[in-house]
Computed example of a mutant assay.
Amino acid sequence: MLITGADLAAPALALLDDYEVVFAGKAPSPDDIVALCRRHDPVAIIVRYGKVGAAAMDAAPSLRVISKHGSGTDTIDKAAAAARGIQVVAAAGANAAAVAEHAMALLLACAKSVAVLNERMHAGHWDKATHKSMELEGRTVGLVGLGAIGLRVARMADAMGMRVLAFDPYAKDVPPFVQRVELDAIWRESDVISLHCPLTADNAGLLSAATLAACKPGVIVVNTARGGLIDEPALLAAIRSGQVAGAGLDSFAEEPMTPAHPFHGEPRITLSPHVAGVTADAYVKMGVGAARNALAVLHG
């Protein structure tokens, strides 16, 4: 079994005792993964980092399942897998608590200017007389995506006294405190927009110059989903114009973020390096979930 990472949680490895486990390292390239597939012909791949495409699948004729260490499967060529009879499974919900908490942390950091005030304080300033932050009670949060993560964020926002709007045509069992709306209402009515949907060909660049212009002036944007959902130059322009008051971002169009990225140095953009789902607890939950999902396919 191939793990496209440098490690796997011990409880997950214990489930795989009957298999030889090969690690690809902490940052495997697609070519690295192809080479390892050719060398070891795995029956299963657990995907932590890197992309698994058709070339890797063709290099592993025994491959039966590709299991994501987490919920997002956009780094796996699902069409190629389907064409080859390879199942793609994900540990959906395993990191939901971690990501939802991080989304709320980014929202609070933006609304309360946490990073900016911290930097100012360390530089010896005392901005009590001039600073005013945003109070979230009574404000409206618009959630795009109402899966396991979006639902947790909705519950947190409701507990804080926020009005909760959500767009998700596939959501079931929506709580009564969540108002389902179309996307145009999300843009028009939200004081905060938080993204919790997968990245697809249809929604790439969902937050664009046009949709950002349709938002309420001073909106806050939070993204703990996928970077490709946002047109980054359009967001930067909206930040600089004041149309967007702040952004809390954990994922980006290109990762890792390159030095001298346009977002660097923007005081109203709070950044984290795609670690929303990275906690000690989620590491175990995702590993065990990915291992169990792979074994479920292999054992029929």
Rank of each mutant, 00 (worst) to 15 (best):
G142W: 11
P267I: 12
I186R: 02
T140C: 04
I149H: 03
L15E: 10
I193M: 05
L15H: 01
H196G: 12
G53F: 05
G228M: 10
S29T: 15
G289D: 09
D41T: 11
P217G: 07
D32G: 07
V114F: 11
A82T: 11
D77P: 10
A44F: 08
E254D: 13
G227W: 13
G248R: 10
H274V: 04
G246F: 06
R38W: 00
S113N: 15
M257V: 15
A111M: 07
T130W: 11
A247P: 14
A103N: 06
D77Q: 04
A290R: 04
A35I: 02
A214H: 02
S251L: 01
H196Q: 12
H299D: 14
D17H: 10
L229R: 08
A44C: 13
Y283I: 08
A92H: 10
V178Q: 04
A105W: 05
L235S: 12
V116A: 09
P176T: 14
D18C: 00
A90P: 07
L249D: 02
V88P: 01
P61V: 02
A209E: 14
V153K: 06
I230L: 11
V222P: 02
V144C: 03
G218K: 06
G287C: 12
S113H: 15
A210P: 00
G25A: 04
I76H: 03
F263M: 15
A204T: 08
A44E: 04
M160Q: 09
V284T: 13
L236C: 01
R48A: 13
V297S: 04
R48P: 01
A245W: 10
S194T: 14
L295K: 08
I186P: 09
A54Q: 12
R268S: 14
I186F: 12
T211I: 06
G147H: 12
L16Y: 07
A210C: 00
S113I: 00
P198F: 07
F167Q: 12
S67Q: 02
Y49A: 11
P176R: 14
P175Y: 13
I3S: 01
R64M: 04
A238V: 01
E119D: 15
L146Q: 13
I239W: 09
G246L: 05
A115F: 08
K285I: 00
M160D: 02
E232F: 09
A14S: 14
D127Y: 05
H261V: 11
A237S: 13
V114D: 03
S190C: 06
F23N: 01
S71C: 09
A60I: 00
D281L: 09
N223G: 10
G25K: 00
A56Q: 08
S190I: 02
L8S: 01
A214Q: 14
D202T: 14
